[in-house]
């Protein structure tokens, strides 16, 4: 299983993104999260299950209820995910810059 791709599939859904934003402020039980959406309660539960499975959310029992909170480490992984791609372009562009500086000084000499 490709966990990274799952994380991206998880955040590709607008309701799941809204849930993440909601619990970013504070840990909430499923009922309180569902109250924020027009979608049916089982649909919200399914979203919570997907987010928990890919570790974007942590489920913590608190009394009789389960509170959902954001997993900051996993969220960071999403940000880092772009990093190798960014570095690839950074290196290409650094080369471009060095190359064209050299090119410019050579054309001035001639």
């Amino acid at each position: 299983m490709n966990l990274r791709r799952d994380v991206f599939q998880a955040i590709a859904d607008p309701t799941r993104r809204a849930i993440l934003l909601l619990v970013a402020a504070q840990a909430l039980p499923a009922g309180a999260i569902a109250a924020n959406f027009d979608t049916a309660r089982p649909t919200v539960s399914k979203h919570l299950q997907i987010l928990t499975e890919c570790e974007l959310l942590k489920a913590e029992p608190n009394g009789r209820e389960i509170y959902y909170q954001l997993n900051p480490e996993k969220m960071k992984e999403i940000a880092d995910f772009i990093e190798p791609f960014r570095q690839l372009w950074e290196e290409r562009f650094n080369t471009l810059e060095a190359l064209m500086k050299d090119y410019s000084s050579k054309s001035k000499e001639s």
């Binding site: 955040i11 590709a12 859904d13 993104r17 999403i78 772009i82 791609f85 960014r86 372009w89 950074e90």
Partner: peptide, 12 residues
């Protein structure tokens, strides 16, 4: 400093 910035919004 890293000069290259990538904007890749989730879901886009």
């Amino acid at each position: 400093t890293q000069k290259t910035k990538i904007q890749a919004e989730a879901g886009k």
